[in-house]
Amino acid sequence: MTSAKSESVTMAENQILRCGWLTKDPIYIKYHDEEWGKPQYNNEALFEMLCLEGQQAGLSWLTILKKRENYRKIFFNFDPHKISKLTEKNVKLILNESGIVRHKGKIDSIINNAKCYLQMENEGEDFSTFIWSFVNKKPIINSWKKYTDIPPETPESAALSKALKKRGFKFVGSKICYAFMQACGLVNDHVVNCVCSNTYK
């Protein structure tokens, strides 16, 4: 009886339609179903995702996703105040951590970006308000029929990239910014037949 029930659940799961970029990795599916495209407004959560998207450069997102908990542990759950105090000595120790991408430029960028974040805060600029201003404070809802139609960047991501670079942020190119915008729900790029296409509208 248990076997039949399990088989039924598996068949039902296989019939669920999702975005075509997904693999069958359970971690990826969970991320797609519960996070990707969901509007995020929390300052530190947005900062975390921006940093992680920068770590992805040249790699797959799944690689970073599997290392996310290690990043959170090493970088104080992406608390900018604590990250900003890390020294060059700390960086050398972090580069010995096998659970993250050991790329000095990328590690340095997290510390640099934390300092930029705090500079904005000190100047009275709220990070979430700043980020969401590039979509007029409202998610852009797209209706792509297939994931291959989705552009790698947009005028909005280019504008965000330019503004972040002006404030000193690193690893924030237009394509990285668009992936960030997709992840944090500034744009809803779930394809129309995806089970999540209407979840966050």
Results as ranks from 00 to 15, higher is better:
198 N>Y: 12
185 G>P: 00
33 D>S: 07
49 M>A: 11
28 Y>T: 10
114 A>C: 06
150 I>Q: 01
156 E>R: 13
101 V>D: 01
3 S>P: 02
68 R>Y: 11
139 P>R: 01
48 E>F: 05
63 T>E: 08
3 S>R: 11
49 M>G: 05
17 L>Q: 15
147 Y>R: 01
83 I>E: 07
108 D>W: 02
181 M>N: 07
17 L>E: 15
82 K>T: 08
90 N>T: 05
13 E>F: 15
156 E>L: 08
56 Q>F: 09
180 F>L: 01
95 L>I: 08
32 H>N: 07
67 K>W: 05
186 L>D: 05
32 H>A: 07
83 I>L: 05
28 Y>P: 12
125 E>R: 05
128 S>P: 03
61 W>R: 00
68 R>H: 12
54 G>Q: 04
49 M>L: 13
15 Q>Y: 06
128 S>D: 03
9 V>C: 10
101 V>Q: 01
56 Q>I: 06
96 N>Y: 10
56 Q>S: 08
28 Y>N: 06
13 E>A: 13
137 K>N: 15
101 V>A: 02
23 T>Q: 04
161 S>G: 03
81 H>S: 11
26 P>F: 09
71 Y>F: 10
17 L>I: 14
7 E>H: 12
181 M>H: 09
122 N>M: 10
189 D>S: 06
11 M>I: 14
122 N>I: 02
11 M>N: 13
45 A>W: 08
87 T>V: 09
163 A>T: 04
118 L>E: 00
173 G>V: 09
88 E>L: 10
196 C>T: 11
115 K>G: 05
99 G>W: 00
141 I>M: 07
148 T>L: 08
160 L>K: 01
56 Q>N: 03
201 K>G: 11
27 I>R: 09
44 E>F: 14
2 T>E: 14
45 A>M: 11
119 Q>A: 15
161 S>H: 02
197 S>M: 03
35 E>Y: 12
68 R>D: 09
10 T>R: 13
188 N>G: 07
181 M>L: 09
195 V>K: 13
61 W>S: 02
34 E>Y: 10
43 N>W: 09
69 E>F: 04
102 R>T: 03
69 E>D: 11
74 I>C: 00
65 L>F: 06
171 F>P: 01
116 C>M: 03
112 N>C: 15
177 C>Q: 04
37 G>Q: 04
55 Q>S: 04
200 Y>R: 07
130 F>G: 04
37 G>T: 10
40 Q>A: 11
171 F>G: 02
108 D>V: 06
181 M>E: 02
157 S>E: 07
82 K>I: 06
97 E>S: 10
70 N>E: 01
18 R>L: 08
106 K>D: 03
71 Y>N: 02
76 F>N: 02
192 V>Y: 05
31 Y>M: 03
73 K>M: 02
197 S>R: 14
80 P>L: 00
7 E>M: 12
34 E>I: 02
72 R>E: 09
88 E>S: 14
187 V>L: 06
